[in-house]
Design a binder for these strands. Structure first.
Length: 485
RNA sequence: GGCCCCAUGGUCAAGUGGUUAAGACGGCGCCCUCUCACGGCGCAAUCAGCGGUUCGAAUCCGCUUGGGGUCACCA
């Protein structure tokens, strides 16, 4: 049987890397076996609906490369793929369970439920007291006629244990007595998340339910539902959570399940910060899973090929920006010249770089940037040339002093004037000058670079800096710097 | 608090009874070098604790401790 997985986000307008990682593993689980990946939008919560949120989901999935085979935007044989368009579907299923005595109508008010919770003994949490579980036929009819709103609750077994098998966590058992009579249908007639989930997964033929391990403890309820309907229970693959670090009131570092409060962990946030979608995908693939061998840089296609459910780990993983940055840098280094230029171009334009230097910058910048937005800073010297502090000329390691700088620049100016403005020629000219003067290369190259750039740190050496500036600008700057010495 | 899950360096992790306990990020040092990177080399740093089982335990079992998750007419 062909594997079918689904990603079922709620349109809240925000997708953090935790959700994305789940989507990724769902995608990989299906695609590794040449299965089908379904996108379903779970929008049964009318109060939390956010305008335009579904577009965020589509855009994210597209950018991340997690293309779905069926979904609201492209259709499929199991539609509709938006829960709000499936509303008529759920109620009959709930009614069926009521009829079969596996569920019941509950007329308890929210206030009563609230007071139940408030009156619970200190430090404990109590569930529903099953007040309406055994209402008489007359009482039910009376309430119904009076138009009292009701929810439909599932009857949980009062004793025994429910056991299920998870592909990553193995066999897990829960005492049934701990299970609440969960609500299936709300007073507004909408299904609850859990209920809709089961109905949808079954009717959509989902074979493998891949989700975060926070669902481990509600899975028995799901299974009891599947059993109530006599449906096959899907294969479960629960994923270790991705954790974020925060600082609490006492200044202590705490880790907890990734959420909005963990700062810029939104996929779009990261992309806007300059992380490549495929690098983000690569990195989060490694949070909770490791391939055989020691290679860590992968494309999506490689991940599809290598992904192996049995290598998913059980323990939570902390999201690490440093490692993400490294992965991003590795992806940048592997980019073709064209790809790199495409991403770098906006920053080049901003820095006043012209096309004849694109190839040079490809070489210079690739090993030097972690994110593309760093280009601005790296090339700021091209545009800005201010009266820098002359002490920059003093560099112990390069054996450069104010005096030698002046000497060398005086000698370099005429040489540079007569040198073809090419990388090799410029470098050779400076080396020859140093040799002729009997000094280390650095004694001439250091001051030339500083004089031209006006800053200590540049991407590349003196020849590259002069190349980027062009002959006129370089000579102007060097002479100006020399005049100040 | 009940229930459930987890436990190898600061972080991500390999490892499935016999290894000098991989690798990566980060840190530190050295080399390369006109700066900064890249690259190369090296260093520090881990099996939470205690009991078992076994000739032998990071690997199996139990307890303890620690961490996380979950207990809504939210998803």
């Amino acid at each position: 049987m062909k594997i079918r997985t689904r990603f079922a986000p709620s349109p809240t307008g925000f997708m953090h890397v935790g959700n994305l990682r789940t989507a990724l593993y769902e995608f990989l689980t299906a695609k590794h076996e040449d299965g089908t990946f379904v996108l379903r939008i779970e929008d049964t919560d009318q109060e939390r609906y956010v305008e335009g949120a579904t577009d965020v989901i589509y855009n994210t999935m597209k950018l991340a490369g997690l293309t779905h085979d069926e979904g609201p935007d492209i259709g499929g044989d199991f539609g509709p793929y938006v829960q709000s368009e499936r509303l008529d579907l759920y109620k009959p299923y709930a009614e069926q369970l009521v009829k079969e005595g596996k569920a019941y109508r509950c007329f308890c008010t929210k206030e009563r439920l609230a007071s139940l919770r408030e009156n619970a003994p200190e430090g404990t949490v109590v569930g529903y007291d099953r007040h309406c579980r055994d209402l008489s036929e007359e009482e039910i009819n009376k309430n119904l006629e009076a138009g009292i709103p009701y929810v439909i609750r599932q009857k949980m077994p009062l004793d025994g244990v429910t056991t299920y098998n998870d592909l990553v966590y193995g066999e897990i058992s829960f005492p049934n007595a701990d299970l609440d009579d969960q609500i299936l249908l709300k007073t507004d007639g909408y299904p609850t998340y859990n209920f809709a989930n089961v109905i949808d997964d079954h009717t959509m033929g989902i074979t493998h339910v891949v989700r975060g391990s926070e669902y481990l403890s509600s899975t028995p309820k799901y299974n009891l539902l599947y059993e109530a309907f006599g449906w096959d229970i899907p294969t479960y693959i629960h994923l270790p959570l991705i954790m974020g670090k925060t600082i609490d009131e006492e200044g202590k570092e705490v880790v907890s399940k990734l959420s909005k409060r963990h700062g810029s962990t939104g996929f779009m946030d990261l992309v806007n910060e300059g992380y490549l979608p495929e690098a983000i995908i690569n990195y989060i693939a490694l949070l909770g899973w490791a391939p055989e061998g020691t290679e860590e840089i992968f494309t999506l296609d490689e991940l599809i090929r290598l992904f192996d459910i049995t290598r998913i780990s059980k323990s939570p993983a902390v999201f690490d920006y440093d490692k993400l940055a490294w992965v991003n840098a590795e992806h940048i280094k592997r980019m073709s010249e064209e790809e790199f230029l495409k991403s770098a171009k906006p920053y080049y334009d901003e820095a006043g770089i012209t096309s004849e230097n694109y190839a040079l910058l490809d070489e210079l910048l690739k090993p030097r940037i972690t994110k593309f937005n760093e280009i601005t800073d790296k090339l700021s010297f091209v545009k800005d040339f201010t009266e820098f502090d002359l002490s920059l000329f003093e560099h112990k390691k390069s054996k450069s002093t104010l005096e030698t700088s002046k000497q060398m620049l005086e000698l370099a100016v005429p040489v540079l004037e007569d040198t073809p403005w090419e990388r090799e020629a410029l470098t050779e000219a400076m080396k020859s000058l140093a040799e002729a003067q009997g000094v280390k290369n650095s004694v001439v190259m250091w001051p030339v670079r500083i004089a031209a750039a006006g800053v200590a740190v540049t991407p590349g050496g003196c020849s590259e800096v002069m190349l980027l500036l062009g002959k006129d600008e370089s000579m102007r700057r060097i002479k100006e710097s020399l005049a100040r010495l």
